[in-house]
Write a protein that binds this DNA or RNA. Sequence first.
DNA 1: CGTGTTTACCGCCATG
DNA 2: ATCATGGCGGTAAACA
Length: 320
Amino acid sequence: MTMRSIAFLVFPGFQILDLTGPLAAFEMAGLFAPDAYRLVTIAATAGAVASSSGLCIQAEALSRAKRCDTLIVVGGDGIRDVFRDTMLLRFVQGMARRTRRIASVCSGAYLLAAAGLLDGRAATTHWSRAADFARRFPDVRVEADRIFVRDGDIWTSAGISAGIDLALALVECDLGEDVARAAARQLVVYHRRPGGQSQFSALLDLAQPQSRFDALLHRARERLTERLSVEDLADEMAMSPRNFSRAFARETGTSPARAIERLRLEAARAALDNGVVSLAVVASQTGFGDADRMRRAFMRIYGRTPLAFRSHVTQPAALA
DNA sequence: CGTGTTTACCGCCATG
DNA sequence: ATCATGGCGGTAAACA
């Protein structure tokens, strides 16, 4: 197996989770694929680099990344100064020619865009900066609602924890789905977030963030074991069932019952993928009542049984 | 697997 | 007139 060197570029005022999330994801992948990755953190000036939280990390010189496989640029408020830094821009441009692929987390995309690497490409960044980003870099196709975007050998990801999703996707690309899922399980995060593309999970694929049903769905997800009938939900919105159904369908594109079912399916999938709890327990915890009803719902929507969503990956030797 | 019951959804119409 | 609302009844699907 070839050892791949992954270089993380940091700078003063970087976001600590943009670095440590993906770092930990690659580390976990290493439990299942020993010696697959070598991880190095680099900065324009070697030595202690303070993150925006004040926590410092020890970075190595840029020259340490000359022969790396992947460069990952992290984000953070400090990017405001960094993406105008001609020395770093030239470094990134040079890396684009040398490395197999380049990625960014959160506002790290600013550096890639300023270096011209994203011109004509699809990319994403933290949702709160998407508008500013699009204004500054009109040649980039910003896909603001995505967790991460791949365009050729350039990968960009949304805010903070999305960097973990990005890293898992890179791992899957390198080492296959089994290793990526095992690493995700070790991190206790979703391998592929249900809802796939939305920074806000599938839940808000349904209702717009400012929709009057957005909060309702969020609350419902916290108490899936309750009845959550159309009548209950209408009552909670202080609307008649008829009008609630109609308004909900108009504003979310799906019916109330289908939305609730989707939430239950997502929760059940996550529980199946992450844990070893029995089907009956998962069914009860997600509001399906019993395993048979859950199974029927899975077949109806996914065309596969709940068991098909269980990951069958052994524990890493280091933790056995 | 068949069967009675419940639930969800939708068209229609009345109201304000 | 237009629009949001809400009640009624039929139908189909899911449940028991």
